[in-house]
Amino acid sequence: MIAEAKKLQFRSTSKGKITDKIAKIIFMSATILSASFIFVIAGIVLVRGVIPFTTDNLGVGRVSLFSFLTGDIWLIGETFASNLYSIGFIIISTLFITLLSLAISFPVGVLTALFIAKIAPKPLAKVLRTVIETLASIPSIVFGLFGAGVILKLVYDFSALIGYQSKGGNSILSVVIVLALMTIPTITTISEVAIRSVDKSIEQGSLALGASKTQTNFKVILSSAKSGIFTAAILGIGRSLGEATAVSLVAGGRRAGISFDLLDTTSTLTTIMLEGLKETTGIDYDIRFSVGLVLMVVILLTNLLLNSIKRRVGVVNVKE
């Protein structure tokens, strides 16, 4: 009887092991598939992106990597006949714009998350959560159309009020507003999850020690959720750096010179890749892959930097 039972048990575990193995293989192949796409994409961009620097581009001439990364005019001379491309000023304006938009979206997003998670009455919180989630899933082109139709006019009129002749509202300010609108939902959704998963006992402990609700919210809850909030900021920055469509509708297509003037036109790495992409050939096409390569490096470096800061910020007792 006992032997029989043992046999059964053995059979069932060995069966379980086989299922485990199969599941493991399925999971692993899914992972390998998705991970390999990253290498395939990065590889193709790399291969195409180095063409302008390694070949003479069908007689146009090799692009100098140093002046490409440091110069402040997108292209000197005739398209298809010149190799004098530079994106130094665009790298800087891209980072500048990303920082500015984060300066708006981060506080607004985190405070909204705090409101939804801790302050708002339950039914209101439910409605707001749905609104924010809907906002997060709106495609970027819709934000772009809103930017081109509404924000450009507001910025143009605002410039006129302060006596500045705006270029139809196409400006850093418009880009920053559009990007902030796009990143607020991302930051809010993720921060809200982080805030909600802060252990109740920490909150109650703070209240029991006599701290007010506001003190608890800011000093205890936000600092306990800071790791998750930081993740939200990282994803927000990622969305800002990578956005092309919406930005190109309000940026104005600046082609030369760094400008930190909020009401002046600008370009970002993504808009310079997008504008004219559909109609171009040869070096003017390949150079866009080089810009893509630079963008990938910028995103990688930013992520590494932010992740190292995030590790230092640390995690306080957060329920997983």
Partner: peptide, 26 residues
């Protein structure tokens, strides 16, 4: 036609619809 360097400083690049809508504002 193919060179931005010869254009006036501070020009703006937009697509067909972009030019149409921005001239409506500017």
């Amino acid at each position: 036609a193919t060179s931005d360097s010869v254009l006036v400083e501070g020009f703006l690049i937009k697509d067909n619809t972009g030019i149409l809508s921005t001239i409506g504002i500017d």
